[in-house]
Design a protein around this nucleic acid. Structure first.
Lengths: 214, 214
DNA sequence: GCGGTGTTTTTGTGATCACAAAGAGCGCGT
DNA sequence: ACGCGCTCTTTGTGATCACAAAAACACCGC
């Protein structure tokens, strides 16, 4: 669903939407944070109309929740919901990785290794938002090779829903070691080992969850 | 995502949204059909504002496509996209059915059998829209038992994207025989046979696709 | 007849407004 | 000190408008 072509005239509501979306996905906003139409409008220098459209769009994608009185805020997910979303990530991303595997040439693996190095840097720097962003870039770069845009869009929707929660999670986690499953993913890609890749993805995706429950 | 509680004050845009959504999901609208803001507004007796919100929401869910000039229309899916969406249905619905299996008691199976009888009636009556609606009701009734609202919502989003296409498909299909895989699903549910259920769901979901490619 | 060109109509966009409901704050009474 | 009620502010909703771009249409020359 991500389109990288330079849109000649990005409509106002699209600009607002994209701005908020990346902020939410990367965990810039904490769970439970309320957003107001006029506040968004002021921040992006637009009227209430485009602000409303972008907020409602994000609500439709599950990135924000709509209270009964119409107020929108970033969601505070229950543990059950988090587990369900992790299961969805696993389901979708294992399939995406599996489809990407036959198309994963050396250049791609090299790029993934570069991104992985950035991730380690973010960890060393204790930069939670940067870590989430770079980690998602790692996954998206791989899944783009699957040539399955609808499936990738769904995976991104799940990321979006988990964004604020992941921030709260990793923020308090203060991990020090690099993600070990990423090395397993890279090894499986190099070896063309599909079962190994599926297991590595599943482990990587559900890894964060285990830390939460603990 | 479907909420059956009687909302005391359904906002205008919600009423419009729901109306359009069920129409699209059930295949009331043919692929490629264009929708205009003022037209929707007239039809539902609202101004452009709620019409716009509902259209944009449906676009966000992939139920409608937005042309470069801002016009919205029901999508005409490529064969590749249809295959991908069918794969998504398979992925999600197999998991949903698998989760519903341990919770599927006799009352549920009985209800499914009743719905299945309705499906046969729709087929005999050559009612394409009624067939799609009842068929989705069969699946949703089963999946509701999975207690996985986010996953069910995603499956419904896929149905929504396939709605107009399924209509065009089944409309020209003129099938005469009842869906054989539904009997397999019921049998597997009664027997508590999980592998059999997974296979039956996968077959049922991808069955329509095969007819399209042929 | 046909293609192109001008006009006219339709359509989406974003701003603004009036309104009602929800929230926040404050003070009064007990 | 605490709860209740009142008021003022904030907030979302939906209608309407002006504007620009796009589409539809009609007309004219060839």
């Amino acid at each position: 669903m991500i389109n990288s072509r330079p849109d000649p005239s990005p409509s106002a509501h699209d600009r607002v939407y994209r701005g908020l979306r990346t902020r939410i996905m990367h965990g810039d906003i904490a769970p439970g944070q309320a957003l107001t139409l006029r506040g968004i409008g002021r921040e992006f220098n637009v009227s209430m109309t485009p602000a409303r459209e972008s907020l409602r769009r994000l609500v439709a994608e599950g990135a924000l929740t709509l209270s009964s009185s119409g107020r929108v805020s970033t969601p505070e997910l229950s543990n059950e919901r988090i587990e369900e979303l992790a299961a969805l990530r696993s389901l979708l991303e294992v399939e995406l990785a599996s489809r990407a595997l036959p198309r994963a040439h050396f250049a791609l693996i090299e790029r993934l290794q570069t991104i992985n190095a950035s991730i380690n840097e973010m960890i060393a720097r204790q930069d939670a938002v940067g870590y989430i962003r770079t980690n998602l870039e790692f996954h998206r770069t791989l899944y783009l090779r699957a040539q399955a845009p609808a499936m990738l869009a769904m995976a991104e929707t799940v990321w979006l829903q988990l964004g604020p929660t992941m921030r709260a999670l990793y923020g308090r986690l203060r991990r020090k070691d690099p993600p070990r499953f990423h090395r397993m993913i890279l090894a499986a890609l190099k070896a063309g080992d599909e079962p190994g890749l599926r297991m590595a993805i599943r482990s990587d995706v559900t890894q964060g969850l285990k830390m939460l429950v603990a």
